[in-house]
Design a protein around this nucleic acid. Structure first.
Length: 504
RNA sequence: GGCGCUAUCGUCUAGGGGUCAGGACAGAUGGUUCUCAGCCAUCAAACCGGGGUUCGAAUCCCCGUAGCGCUACCA
């Protein structure tokens, strides 16, 4: 690839709007986007919605929002326009874009009308299968006489248009897979226009790529087998094809291709956003699926990806989607946020749970929230984790976790009496200390445990359950101070009542 | 069934004729702390099989095998 070409690099992502943006789509988008960025090129978002029955507006919006969230902005495309608009294939169809190409193909004899019905075709396929033949459709309509055509037409049959495959090998030069020659004997005369007049993907895709001056088609390997077909169409039209790069599939844990149909929400990019994943983590994760820079680096900022990503280093085999690794990355990126930014990130989650009302957020309240986030520290794998980690700060309507109660409050009357004793003492101490700050609270509690020969863990865990209902969480001193004296005393009293009650 | 693609720890991968086959995630153990998370230390864990080529092959070649993808008037 020379300098001129590099400056002119034009790549595209061409999703069909039949569902949400999924992990594989996000990765395809990222690889294209990175390629465009590093070659000073143009990233185009084209909507391939030739399958009218399955395409929806809503899906289109989902894809836009997913890409925007990831920060993968496009220079030309669907909602944005550009020098080669429209970028939505259904609009191109109604604009008659493909008609002259089909006309040309028909006129130069590389395409022909086929009058076979779907039923006939199914029978042909079944027959080919029992005979173990490579191609099924045998080109039988290629040499139909005018009379035969008229006859079919009289029956009311509407023809499809098929492309005639060449009998010379087609060479596919793929950046990732290398050069390979496809035996034309394995290719069949594909339908390029349906009987209802709608063009099919193989036709529209390559024509749009050519018309939009796409230089590199970077797409999933599920399209590998369609490449020679598309090249045959371009060749028949005398068009120059772009360079191809087929990236390996994203697989599930049993090694199968991740798909909307079989994996649902697990592959939906927007669901990860809802669950509190950061776009940086998502991007970093997806970039490392099938690609590595060296044997050291795992963490890549977007800037570093632009600098270091190399399509030529992308592997050839599929990669299994590993949620644990995504979680690790996400926790890392959350930690990278300073407390203020982390608070901003977490507020929508509190709000969704009704724990924080952003319409009435005072500076004082905001400062308190930041302290909570600071106390939680590195305990967030996803932003959503803020809820179980902090719910008790906002409400005392929580249950005491049974397992924790059993372990730390005790399951015998004797142990429970001891717990009541400890909680009572702590309550008195906390009620009596002159100041309610970290240092004072800490030294008062340690003084009590050490002087009375009580295990620190025992006292602390008993108190933790009283205040939060759980046995895990931030430093208990942080919790005590952030809750405030009144609330702490109230919750201890409530715990004592619980422990002394008939049920306990 | 046909056609195609692929093959290093459980997972993501580095390496690529001579390496103790490296790292990361996950897992296990220990340490630190009031718990959890984290952090630190340690451990366990791989070149699909068989033939060649070669002094030497995980690496190159061939053949198998397995997995996956495609096989539509879906994209």
């Amino acid at each position: 690839m020379n300098d001129t070409l590099q400056k002119l690099a034009r790549v595209r992502m061409a999703p069909s709007p039949t569902g949400f943006l999924h992990i594989g789509g996000a990765r395809t988008a990222l690889f294209n986007w990175l390629f465009a960025k590093q070659h000073n090129g143009t990233f185009i978002l084209r909507i391939d919605d030739t399958d009218m029955a399955r395409s929806t507006e809503e899906s289109m919006r989902e894809i836009y929002s997913g890409l925007k969230w990831l920060g993968l902005d496009w220079d030309e495309g669907g909602d944005k326009g550009g020098p080669y608009e429209p970028y939505v294939q259904s609009e191109r169809i109604s604009g008659g874009v493909y008609v002259p190409y089909v006309q040309q193909l028909l006129e130069n004899g590389t395409a022909y009308h086929c009058y076979c019905t779907p039923e006939e075709l199914a029978a042909i396929r079944a027959q080919a299968r029992v005979e173990k033949r490579t191609r099924s459709y045998d080109g039988r309509c290629q040499h139909l006489t005018q009379k035969a055509k008229a006859c079919f037409a009289a029956e009311g049959r509407k023809p499809t248009v098929r492309i005639k495959m060449p009998n010379t090998p087609i060479q596919v030069d793929d950046i990732i897979l290398g050069i390979r020659n496809i035996d034309p004997g394995t290719l069949e005369d594909e339908v390029i226009v349906r009987s209802n007049g709608m063009p099919t993907y193989n036709l529209t895709s390559i024509i749009d790529d050519v018309e939009m001056q796409i230089t590199h088609v970077i797409r999933g390997t599920e399209h590998l087998n369609t490449t020679p077909k598309q090249m045959a169409i371009a060749n028949a039209l005398g068009l120059k094809v772009p360079q191809f790069a087929h990236i390996p599939l994203v697989l599930d844990s049993s090694g199968r291709k991740m798909s909307k149909r079989h994996h649902g929400a697990l592959v939906a990019v927007n669901r990860y956003r809802e669950q509190g994943y950061l776009p940086e983590a998502m991007l970093n994760f997806v970039a490392r699926l099938g690609w590595a820079y060296d044997d050291k680096q795992e963490i890549f900022s977007v800037e570093e990806l632009i600098e270091k990503f190399d399509l030529g280093r992308v592997g050839k085999s599929g990669s299994v989607f590993d949620l644990k690794k995504l979680e690790w990355l996400n926790a890392h990126y959350i930690t990278q946020l300073d407390v203020s930014a982390r608070t901003d990130a977490v507020i929508p989650f509190w709000q969704a749970e009704g724990l924080v009302d952003t319409t009435a957020l005072t500076a004082e309240h905001r400062a308190w929230l930041e302290k909570i986030v600071g106390a939680v520290g590195e305990r967030l794998t996803t932003l959503q984790d803020i809820i179980p980690q902090t719910r008790y700060f906002f409400t005392d309507a929580f249950d005491y976790e049974a397992k924790a109660v059993k372990k730390w409050w005790g399951n015998s009357a004797e142990k429970q009496n001891k717990t009541v004793e400890i909680l009572t003492s702590l309550s008195q101490i906390l009620a009596g200390i002159p100041a309610f700050d970290l240092g004072t609270v800490e030294s008062a509690i340690w003084k009590y445990t050490d002087e009375n020969n009580i295990k620190r863990v025992a006292a602390m865990q008993a108190l933790r359950i009283a205040l939060t209902g759980t046995s895990f969480g931030p430093s208990l001193f942080d919790i005590v101070v952030l809750l405030g004296r009144d609330e702490v005393l109230k919750r201890i009293t409530r715990a004592i009542v619980q422990l002394s009650g008939p049920a306990a």
